[in-house]
């Protein structure tokens, strides 16, 4: 694992290496180099199993984090590649040519986060939602509760308590925090 990290350190601009477990490292890569880093890992280092691609919305910093997790089934090691893209112009290079199922992940991200992957097959087709006309729902600024209340006729009489607040009020009325 260490030798692989050291090797790719010399070839690509990577930073923030976090050792999650013995056989699992996270690292951050620049947006431009990510696809070539994945290609390198797949072809040279034997990371032949693509586990997942997903996005995290860091709305405070105005960035999307894309996480690619790759797995080497022979050496039994995993690597997680983080890359940050601008939230405004959310586009990323497509990696659909490396594995067939990457296109599905990218289709989902386009729909749920609004991250565009130009060139990815069927990326503009709707995957999960149908006739959705609001902002992409997985973005942090989309309020699902408000949307649900406005759209789906909530049944009167249903109350929801935040357990923390509720227990505090009920059990420890005197306690400060």
């Amino acid at each position: 694992m260490k030798s692989i990290i050291n090797d790719i350190k010399t070839r690509f601009e990577i930073s923030d290496i976090v050792k999650q477990r013995d056989n699992f490292n996270f690292l951050t890569c620049k947006k431009e180099q990510t696809v070539s880093l994945i290609t390198h890992l797949k072809n040279i280092e034997g990371f032949s199993h693509f586990v997942l691609l997903t996005a995290v919305d860091w709305i405070e910093e105005g960035k999307f984090q894309l996480t690619y997790i790759l797995n080497n089934p022979d050496k039994k090691i995993d690597i997680g590649i983080r890359t940050f893209i601008e939230r405004e112009t959310a586009t990323m290079d497509s990696a659909h040519h490396l594995w067939e199922h990457v296109a599905t992940y990218q289709r989902e991200l386009k729909e749920m986060f609004g991250i565009d992957f130009p060139g990815s097959p069927r990326v503009d087709e709707s995957f999960i939602l149908e006739g959705w006309d609001d902002i992409p729902p997985y973005r942090r600024d989309f309020d699902t509760k408000k949307y649900s209340e406005e759209t789906f006729f909530p049944r009167e009489g249903r109350t929801t308590n935040d357990p923390t607040e509720y227990m505090k009020k009920k059990l420890y009325p005197d306690e400060e925090k």
Binding site: F142, T144, K145, Y147, S148, F152, P154, R155, R158
Partner: peptide, 14 residues
């Protein structure tokens, strides 16, 4: 009443 998914944007409540 929506049950567990009362606040979901994609499931109906009633």
């Amino acid at each position: 009443n929506g049950g567990m998914y009362y606040d979901s944007y994609n499931t109906i409540n009633r």
